[in-house]
Amino acid sequence: MGGINIYCGSFSGGDKSGSAFESVLMEMKVMASAFEAETIDRLKTDLDKASDHLLIQASDAKNLLLLTRRYCVVINAQLAAPGDPLDQIARDEARGKADPTDLKYGAGLGWRAYCANDLLKAFEAAEAGAEPVALVW
């Protein structure tokens, strides 16, 4: 898998912005209500079974919208340049403490923020248009 792209309706996330999706889900779960955690567990199971894409139903996106907003506030506040995940990606890579592929799939703060921000936009699009969110690799 080279990376995961996020789509919903006319929204198309940044290049491979969904690559840290699994890590983002697990971090969000720590902040989740019991109901949100159940949705996350179901998505994680679906992700484990998927071969080249995952569809997140609009209802699940809506159920996770507020949690995703809260998570974005938390993770964006941790960035060296708040609100700039691409800057953080470069900083994470420059540190050289992890393999760039590991960073992309969730070991890097910048990649998690990049994913979370596009995931939030996709979930907002799903709520507005009642369309599923597609993660494609």
Rank of each mutant, 00 (worst) to 15 (best):
R70T: 08
I89Y: 04
R69D: 10
R42P: 00
A126N: 06
A58V: 05
S51I: 15
I56E: 03
A128L: 15
M1K: 09
A116H: 04
D48T: 08
E36I: 01
G108E: 12
L119S: 05
A113S: 14
A128W: 07
A116C: 08
Q57P: 06
K49M: 11
N5H: 14
V24G: 05
R91M: 02
L66W: 00
Y7A: 00
F21Q: 09
K49T: 07
K121L: 13
D87Q: 13
A94H: 09
Y7L: 07
V136E: 10
L103P: 08
S12M: 13
Q78A: 12
A122V: 10
A32W: 06
D46I: 01
D46C: 07
C8E: 05
A90Q: 12
Q57R: 11
D99F: 06
A107W: 04
Q57M: 09
E22W: 10
A58L: 01
A37W: 07
M28Q: 11
Q88A: 03
A34Q: 15
L109R: 12
K97F: 11
I56R: 00
E36S: 09
A113H: 04
E22Y: 15
A90D: 10
L79E: 13
V133L: 02
L66Q: 15
G2A: 11
L65S: 04
C8V: 10
P82G: 12
D52S: 14
I75L: 08
R91C: 06
M28H: 08
G13C: 08
A80M: 08
A58S: 14
D52A: 11
S59Y: 01
G83R: 10
F35S: 14
R42E: 09
K16C: 11
L43Q: 01
A134G: 00
A37E: 09
S33T: 14
W137P: 02
I40T: 02
G2S: 14
L135Q: 03
A34T: 13
D118L: 03
R69E: 15
G9F: 02
T39P: 02
M1Q: 08
G83P: 05
D102F: 14
K62R: 15
R70K: 14
T68D: 04
D92W: 12
S23H: 10
D118F: 01
E36Q: 14
A81D: 14
A58T: 06
G18R: 01
G18K: 00
A113T: 09
S23M: 13
G9R: 04
F35M: 07
K97H: 06
D84G: 07
L55M: 13
I4H: 00
H53I: 04
G14L: 12
N63T: 07
L120T: 02
V30A: 10
A81E: 15
A134I: 08
D102I: 07
L120R: 07
I6A: 06
M26D: 08
Y7C: 00
S10I: 11
M28G: 09
G9A: 05
N76Q: 13
A134Q: 10
C8G: 03
D118T: 05
D118W: 00
L47W: 09
L67A: 10
S23D: 12
V133G: 00
A107H: 03
F123E: 06
V30Q: 12
L120F: 05
Y105T: 01
I89R: 06
I6G: 03
Q78F: 01
W111G: 05
K44D: 08
K29N: 09
T39K: 15
G106N: 09
